[in-house]
Computed example of a mutant assay.
Amino acid sequence: MMGAAQIHPTALVAPGAVLGEDVAVGPYSIIGEHVRIGARTRIGPHCAIDGHTVIGPDNHFYRYCSIGGIPQDKKYAGEPTALEIGAGNTFREFVTVNTGTVQDAGTTRLGDDNWIMAYVHIAHDCQLGDHIVISNGVQLGGHIHIGDWAILGGLSAVHQFVRIGAHAMIGGTSSVRQDVPPYMIGAGDSFRPVGINAEGLGRRGFTPADVQVLKDAYKILYRRQLSVEQAIEALAVLQAEHPGEAPAVQTLLDFLRASSRGIARP
């Protein structure tokens, strides 16, 4: 250990753990020997952080979090897989985040400034970006990818290998079984998109012209009865017609071209 970490007398910190300056470890928490924790991170009471886990600075783990546990995968055979967490994230009560598996990248990753509410489960090999909000009780299966600024409503469940695009908004109690393209808003069992997350996009600096072009893109994707391949061709034409809004459309095109599960439909 190094720096001026503040460790409660009842906490157990393994000799090999590395704690940055001003890290605080609360009562009865346990830190494993392969854990590295960045400066100013706060760990509440009764947390367990183990595995090959690297945590950046300025994170906050509330009470009873379980971070870096082994994958809930019967194929796991004790390989030294990992978990990487960026900076400035908040993990509320009873959040669980597992390490990766050798069948995928081997590492579960979370970016920066994510807000993870109580009782959320983030399974092995998930890849989460930045500024994501995951509400209470959301359950993420393995190998899920979630883009920046996405919002997942409470008690929703996401099937393994699903991808959720940037700025998408998933309503509460949804069951997400196929990929959700960027910018979409919707809900349901199973999840059904109903439009573009226009209000959220405006808050994040998208121009009215961006939002209008993305509304047109939604109509191409969902209102014209096109296949994904046909929609991609039509979206490329839309992008060429609106060069000022091309980056926003490109994000949607890149997502559709990479989708392997198929996209959620109304």
Rank of each mutant, 00 (worst) to 15 (best):
I70Y: 05
A5R: 11
H143A: 14
G51R: 02
M2Q: 15
S175R: 11
Y28R: 12
T81P: 00
N89T: 06
D104T: 11
L238S: 09
K74I: 15
C65M: 03
V138F: 05
C47T: 02
D148E: 04
Q250D: 10
I31Q: 08
A77T: 11
Y218T: 03
K215Q: 13
L19H: 12
G69V: 09
P27F: 05
V180H: 00
G165M: 07
Q239F: 12
A4E: 15
D104H: 13
G88H: 11
N98C: 10
A11I: 11
A24I: 13
D216T: 14
P182H: 05
K75G: 08
S29Y: 01
V162N: 02
F91P: 01
K74H: 14
P9E: 13
I43G: 06
H145E: 15
I220Q: 08
R265C: 08
V25S: 04
L253I: 02
A82L: 08
Y218V: 03
R223G: 09
I70W: 04
D104L: 12
S156K: 00
G16N: 14
M184H: 06
S66I: 10
Q212W: 12
T96H: 06
P71R: 10
F255H: 03
G38T: 08
A209N: 09
T10W: 12
H167T: 03
A264F: 00
E245M: 09
R40C: 03
A24S: 12
D179Q: 01
V97Y: 02
Y28T: 05
E241K: 15
G186C: 06
Y64R: 14
I132M: 10
G26P: 07
M169Q: 13
G88L: 08
I31P: 05
S227A: 06
A123K: 05
F206S: 01
Y76N: 05
E84V: 08
L128E: 05
G86E: 03
F94A: 10
H124D: 08
A157R: 02
G69K: 12
L110M: 07
P182E: 05
H60E: 14
L238D: 07
H131G: 11
D73L: 04
I31K: 07
Y64F: 15
D22R: 08
T10Y: 09
S190T: 15
N59I: 00
Y28K: 12
H167E: 01
C47V: 04
G153R: 05
G88T: 09
Y183N: 02
G200S: 02
P15S: 15
Q178F: 08
L140R: 11
P193C: 07
I37D: 00
V54C: 06
Y28D: 10
G68Y: 05
P71S: 10
F161E: 11
F61I: 04
V120K: 04
A150K: 00
Y76S: 01
G32E: 04
V213W: 07
E93F: 07
H143V: 11
F91W: 01
A168D: 00
V13Y: 10
F91D: 01
H124S: 09
N89L: 06
I67C: 07
G200N: 03
I122C: 04
G200D: 05
P243E: 10
V54T: 07
I122L: 09
G202W: 07
L152Q: 00
P15K: 13
E233P: 06
D130R: 14
Q6H: 14
G129R: 13
A198M: 02
S227I: 09
V180I: 09
P15Y: 13
L110Q: 00
P15M: 14
G20L: 12
L201H: 03
A17L: 10
P57I: 13
